[in-house]
Design a protein around this nucleic acid. Structure first.
Length: 869
RNA sequence: GCCCCUGUGGCGGAAUUGGUAGACGCGCUGGAUUCAAAAUCCAGUUCCCGUACGGGAGUGGGAGUUCGAUUCUCCCCGGGGGCACCA
């Protein structure tokens, strides 16, 4: 029989409309059913989805559909992280309004996502740039302010002196503005901050309770919070007329044990003492300006060559007032950490060592490894940070590192020149952005009343539509009238805050909004109490720290202000690997998409040209797919050509979901072939299988029993794989199982076997259920072909018969000296004596043993036999 | 620079978490079917020696622990992510 090929395009449209017409995926609270909230990180509407999105949403959809089948009331919503810089860049480059650009992107991407056949509740969709969303953000900010969770302080930004605009770190390239090319400066601006540091300890401790989070994410957050115990040391200055009398230099150190190895002190360029000295010293002022050209990013600062400026000031060593240490201003000292000043111990800190070598300062090792000789142990280009005994440190000599820390801390505390402290690396969250396309900060500045929140009744503070991007800088600032308002308290002329919120705020609570997306309050307790926390959150590993930590904090802040009753937003987290791809740039530095480039040659001779112009292209590093690098691959052609099911299946196959994958469509033919093969096998099977309501036979023949074992074992394995999100393994099991079915269907003998028709129906039905979460359209088509009248999307996950999972015999390998020499099969539960004699009887073993003496036989039942000779 | 992850055939990867390395898929080779092609089916496919039987090597590199290491420990090398204004 020649069966018809599976027509993906026709079937996919059909089932998508059936699901939609029946509102199959619309969720509602149902206290009688256990809930399950599946959420994938919502996308930034860049215009087109790329393969990274397909991977993310295919994974989430498998979980959502699987949990539905398992009887859960599933919430699986979708929305848009719609504020952000790319919309403003589009406005500047193409003159299109950010809102218009964003909404048309949303339309395009929604269509693409719908073609994927995801089990989403689209009735809950929202975009964060909608005033009906961001008004609640404004209301909550006012609540945060009232509760002391928000405050204003001066903070530095990257400033482009030519474009007169604030630059994001991404827009600073080698210390220059990306458009103007002008060296970047740092500027102090008054900005709003949220007090995430209030929760540093809680955010740290609670990580232990997040058992369904990857350990690596918890580790990254722990390091980010960076709790340290150390000592604040007050260095007295040697008298100097540039200082106020009694002024001391406060230094925070986690290594007080190395105090005798100190050879200098260093101040951050932003340190108050640096600034006051600079006022009277043009050379120092110039040096500080140079430091500031590195921009604000920690990466730039730490990678830069270590440089310093000798202030001429001296401090006295706390344990020896005859010992003076020079005080530098140094480019690698961060004002935000500790006190913004350090004492440098070059022997035991690499940065200090680099600095000391550059400025010819002493390098005295004071921690000596156990196996080293203190008399000869020296440090040259590599600092020693390991354990050891203290040396060259007077009364500390011979102590361990920890003992020495205690002794130093105790002595200085007693003297009043030191204080044990706990510090966190975590800084407060700066949320002000000098940009248009974000949520306006609902604050009014009145000369009379000061900082006044916009009354809640007047929310939302809407973004004005009539803005111009002709001038650089924030269009809200230059808007003719938007910022001029009356003070809500005294009615006098006042000014609106023209900064908008960091877009991380938008994504810090959207999961809560999805529970009741049309509520006139930010959240609806009845809905959030039912749905939250998110049971399975899925997104890229690149969000391991910022987004996930901000959300954890924001949830706590919402709890404190009465908007929610939980502290941890995400019960289970899965961080998928990124889809990465090579990057391509023209010699002028313009990014090109993979479509625009032709690659020739291999290895050393590999090169690329731009298809349109024939010009040679620079092949850049392999990076995560992103709009800004243009290294994205649009799934549209793949979906159009092969169908959404094939695209989904392909993305789930092969690679473990947490691993990065370099995009290639090699192998997609295989996925497509499998779809056809499965459909064909089903067609052939339909001619053999028993009717839908046929009762289960009392007994099964050998062939049928083998098939049933394969069916139930595959189901057990696939269920476990989906529960743990190991989709690639589930795919492999399904391939194997399909091969088994194909073989059974094509074996004439099997058909005569007792109960085979029933066993084959069972196999095909189970197979259909198993592919359903991954290839839902094909699943529905098969389900219907099998004579089912319900939707597979609403069907229950099949039952496993436990007694089909176990065999009565065991096959294990026999090794000689750890090298495999053969295998034996024996009845389950056999004694070690039986196993041993079977193993020794093997030809391959006995042959080797003839000339050798057996020293030991290791038998691990049901695992291995190892004969040691 | 710092923190986190990662490395297995020609390619993506599997290995019950210390117990048969290479499941499954891709690709490739040969064959069947066909007027021909597509599709499909069958066989083979880690590398080296050998017609074969078989033997040896082998999980980025080096050391270690163990009867046994892809798995645990240490050092080194390559790749990716994050570094607070990309999202």
């Amino acid at each position: 029989m020649i069966s018809e090929r599976y027509n993906a395009r026709k079937c996919e449209l059909h089932w998508q409309s059936v699901w939609e017409q029946n509102s199959v995926f619309q969720a509602a609270e149902d206290p009688a059913k256990p809930k399950y909230y599946v959420l994938e990180m919502f996308p930034y509407p860049s215009g087109r989805i790329h393969m990274g999105h397909v991977r993310n949403y295919a994974m989430g959809d498998v979980v959502a559909r699987y949990k539905r089948a398992r009887g859960f009331n599933v919430l699986h919503p979708m929305g848009w992280d719609a504020f952000g810089m790319p919309a403003e860049n589009a406005a500047m480059e193409r003159g299109v309004h950010p809102g218009e650009w964003t909404y048309s992107n949303i339309d395009a991407m929604r269509t693409q996502l719908k073609h994927m056949g995801l089990s989403l509740d689209w009735s809950r969709e929202f975009a964060t740039c909608d005033p009906e969303y961001y008004r609640h953000e404004q209301a909550m900010f006012i609540d945060f302010l009232a509760m002391g969770l928000a405050y204003r302080k001066k903070s530095r930004v990257n400033w482009d002196p030519v474009d007169n605009t604030v630059l994001a770190n991404e827009q600073v390239i080698d210390g220059r503005g990306w458009r103007s090319g002008a060296p970047v400066e740092q500027r102090d601006l008054s900005q709003w901050f949220l007090k995430i540091t209030d929760y540093a300890e809680d955010l740290l401790e609670s990580l232990d309770g997040l058992e369904r989070w990857p350990e690596k994410v918890r580790a990254m957050q722990r390091n980010w919070i960076g709790k340290s115990r150390g000592l604040l040391v007050r260095f007295a200055f040697s008298p100097d007329k540039r200082l106020k009398s009694g002024q001391s230099l406060d230094v925070y150190t986690t290594r007080p044990d190395t105090l005798f190895g100190a050879s200098f002190c260093a101040l951050s360029p932003e340190h108050p003492i640096s600034k006051s000295l600079a006022a009277g010293n043009p050379d120092l002022a110039a040096f500080i300006r140079e430091c500031q050209q590195l921009g604000t990013s920690e990466e730039e600062i730490e990678k830069a060559e270590k440089r310093g400026f000798d202030t001429g000031l001296k401090v006295l060593h706390p344990f020896d007032s005859n010992w003076q240490l020079p005080v530098y201003v140094a480019n690698f000292i961060l004002m935000d950490y500790g006190t913004g000043a350090i004492f440098g111990c070059p022997a035991h800190d690499q940065r200090d060592l680099d600095f000391a070598n550059a400025y010819k300062l002493d390098v005295v090792p004071v921690v000596i490894p156990e196996d080293a000789d203190p008399a000869t142990f020296t440090i040259e280009n590599e600092a020693y940070t390991g354990p050891g005994k203290i040396a060259n440190s007077k009364f500390l000599d011979g102590l361990s590192v920890n003992e020495a820390m205690d002794v130093v801390a105790a002595k200085l505390e007693k003297r009043g020149t030191g204080e044990r402290q706990t510090h966190y690396r975590l800084r407060d969250w700066g949320v002000s952005r000098q940009r248009y396309w974000g949520c306006p900060i609902p604050i009014i500045y009145c000369e009379n009343c000061g900082t006044v929140p916009v009354p809640k009744a007047e929310l939302p503070v809407r973004l004005p539509k009539d803005v111009s991007f002709d001038k650089p800088g924030n269009p809200l600032e230059s808007h003719p009238d938007w910022k001029y308002v009356k003070c809500p308290q005294c009615g006098r002329d006042a000014l609106r805050e023209t900064d908008t919120f960091d877009t991380f705020i938008d994504s810090s609570w959207y999961f809560a909004r999805f529970c009741a997306p049309r509520s006139s309050n930010p959240t609806e307790t009845q809905a959030t109490d039912y749905w939250l926390p998110v049971d399975q959150y899925i997104g890229g590993i690149e969000h391991a720290i910022l987004h996930l930590l901000y959300s954890r904090f924001y949830t706590r802040a919402m709890h404190k202000t009465g908007h929610i009753n939980i502290d941890e937003p995400f019960g289970g987290l899965f961080t998928q690997g990124m889809v990465i791809h090579e990057t391509y740039r023209t010699p002028e530095g313009n990014w090109l998409t993979p479509d625009e480039v032709k690659i020739t040659g291999e290895g050393e001779t590999r090169s690329a040209i731009q298809i349109e112009t024939g010009q040679k292209i620079i092949i850049g590093p392999i990076e995560k797919m992103s709009k800004s690098r243009r290294n994205t691959v649009d799934p549209a052609r793949i979906i159009e050509h092969y169908g959404a099911d094939t695209a989904r299946w392909f993305m789930l196959s092969d690679s473990p979901p947490e691993r990065d994958i370099e995009w290639t469509d090699a192998g997609i033919e295989g996925s497509s072939r499998f779809v056809q093969r499965l459909w064909r096998t089903l067609q052939q099977g339909l001619l053999i299988i028993s009717p839908i309501a046929a009762p289960k036979p009392d007994r099964f023949g050998a062939e049928s029993n083998l098939l049933r074992k394969a069916t139930h074992r595959t189901l057990a394995a696939v269920s476990a794989d989906i529960e743990t999100l190991r989709f690639n393994r589930a795919v492999a099991r399904i391939y194997e199982f399909t091969n088994t079915i194909v073989a059974a269907v094509s074996t004439a003998d099997a058909h005569k076997d007792s109960g085979f028709a029933w066993a084959l129906r069972e196999a095909l039905q189970y197979l259909t259920c198993m592919i359903g979460p991954m290839m839902p359209h094909l699943g529905e088509e098969c389900w219907s072909a099998l004579g089912q009248e319900t939707l597979l999307a609403n069907a229950s996950w099949p039952q496993i018969e436990q007694d089909l999972l176990e065999d009565d015999t065991v096959t294990i390998a026999v090794q000689i000296n750890g090298k495999r020499r053969g295998e034996i099969t024996y009845p389950r539960g056999s004694s070690n004596d039986v196993i041993e004699s079977l193993a020794l009887k093997l030809d391959s073993v006995s042959r080797t043993l003839q000339s050798k003496e057996v020293r030991k036989i290791i038998i691990v039942p049901e695992r291995i036999v190892n004969v040691v000779i």
